[in-house]
C-alpha cells in the first residue's frame, strides 16, 4: 500500500458515501411517505394483536382483504408489550388485546377511542405437550416429577400467563411447582418453548393448540378470571373507519366461524363446559 492507490481509495469512499446518502433519503421517504397527515390510502391497516390470535387473525386478515380490498398487517406480541408501544405512539390502527384491562389502559392514556371498545371473544387455556409426552388429565397432575419444566407466559404482561398462574393457584399446585416454571415472552413464545422440547409441558392458549392440530387438556374456565378479550380503535384518526370495519368483520358470520374454529367463545355464547 502506497500513496499511489490513495486516490482510488478516496474515490471508493466517496462512492460509498454517495450510495449511503441515497439510501438515507430512501429511508427518509419511507418514514414520511407512510404517515402523511390526513392522506387516506386505505389499502392497508396495521393491527396490534395479542399473540394468541396469530393463527385466527392471519386467516381473518386474508378473508378481510378478499372481501374489502384492504390488507391487514399484524404485529403480534403480549398485550402488555403492545399496550406499551401504543401508549408510546406506535402507528397501529386497531388494538386487539387478550384482556380488556389493557384496552382500558390504552383508552385512559388517550390513545384509544373509548366508543369503539368492544369484547370480541373469551379465551381458554389448555395444558399442552408435544407428541411423545404424556398429557396430564388435569392441572393437579402437573406436580408429577416427569414435568421438569412447565412453561407459562409471563404473568406480568401476558394475560394468558396471568390466567395460567391463577389456575395453578386455584388448583393449589402453584407453590409446589413454582420452581419448575419457565416463562415465555408471550403466549406463542411459550408455545414454542414447549414445542421445541425445552419444557415438557406448557399452559397455552387453546387457539394455538388447535392451530397445531395436536392433543390438549382444557383447563376449567372457573379456575381463572375470564380472559375477556377486547379491542379498541386507536385515536390516530387515519384509517379509523377501516379499523372499525375489521373489528365488525370479527363479529360477522364469516369472522365468527373462524374464531369459533380456533376455540374462542364469542360474545353472547355460553361457555362450553370442559
Amino acid at each position: 500500500m502506497s500513496t499511489a492507490d490513495a486516490p482510488s481509495w478516496t474515490r471508493r469512499a466517496v462512492g460509498v458515501l454517495v450510495g449511503a446518502a441515497v439510501a438515507m433519503v430512501l429511508v427518509g421517504c419511507g418514514a414520511d411517505g407512510a404517515s402523511p397527515p390526513g392522506a387516506l390510502e386505505v389499502d392497508r391497516i396495521t393491527v396490534a394483536a395479542a399473540s394468541d390470535l396469530r393463527p385466527a387473525f392471519e386467516e381473518l386478515g386474508q378473508a378481510f382483504e378478499a372481501a374489502t380490498g384492504t390488507s391487514v398487517t399484524f404485529s403480534f406480541g403480549s398485550s402488555g408489550q403492545l399496550r406499551e408501544q401504543i401508549v408510546n405512539g406506535a402507528p397501529f390502527h386497531l388494538f386487539a388485546a387478550a384482556n380488556v384491562s389493557f384496552v382500558d389502559e390504552v383508552i385512559a392514556s388517550g390513545r384509544g377511542v373509548a366508543t369503539t371498545k368492544a369484547d370480541y371473544a373469551l379465551g381458554r387455556i389448555v395444558l399442552w405437550a408435544p407428541s411423545g409426552v404424556a398429557l396430564p388429565k388435569s392441572i393437579e397432575e402437573l406436580t408429577d416429577a416427569r414435568y421438569r419444566r412447565i412453561a407459562i407466559a409471563n404473568p406480568d404482561h401476558a394475560p394468558y400467563g396471568l390466567a395460567a398462574e391463577q389456575a395453578l393457584k386455584s388448583a393449589g399446585v402453584h407453590d409446589r411447582i413454582r420452581s419448575r416454571l419457565v416463562y415465555g415472552e408471550n403466549i406463542s413464545d411459550t408455545f414454542r418453548i414447549v414445542q421445541s422440547n425445552n419444557a415438557e409441558i406448557g399452559i397455552v392458549a387453546l387457539s394455538l393448540a388447535i392451530a397445531d392440530g395436536s392433543q390438549y387438556t382444557l383447563v376449567p374456565a372457573e379456575l381463572h378470571e375470564p380472559l375477556e378479550q377486547a379491542l379498541v380503535v386507536t385515536s390516530r384518526g387515519e384509517h379509523g373507519n377501516a379499523a372499525a370495519a375489521f373489528a365488525r368483520f370479527l363479529g360477522s358470520p364469516a369472522g365468527r366461524e373462524v374464531m369459533v374454529r380456533y376455540g374462542f367463545v364469542l360474545p353472547g355464547e355460553a361457555l362450553p363446559t370442559s
Partner: peptide, 9 residues
Amino acid sequence: GGPLVFTPT
C-alpha cells in the same frame, strides 16, 4: 407531522 418512534428512522 408524525411521531419519530416506531418508524424506520
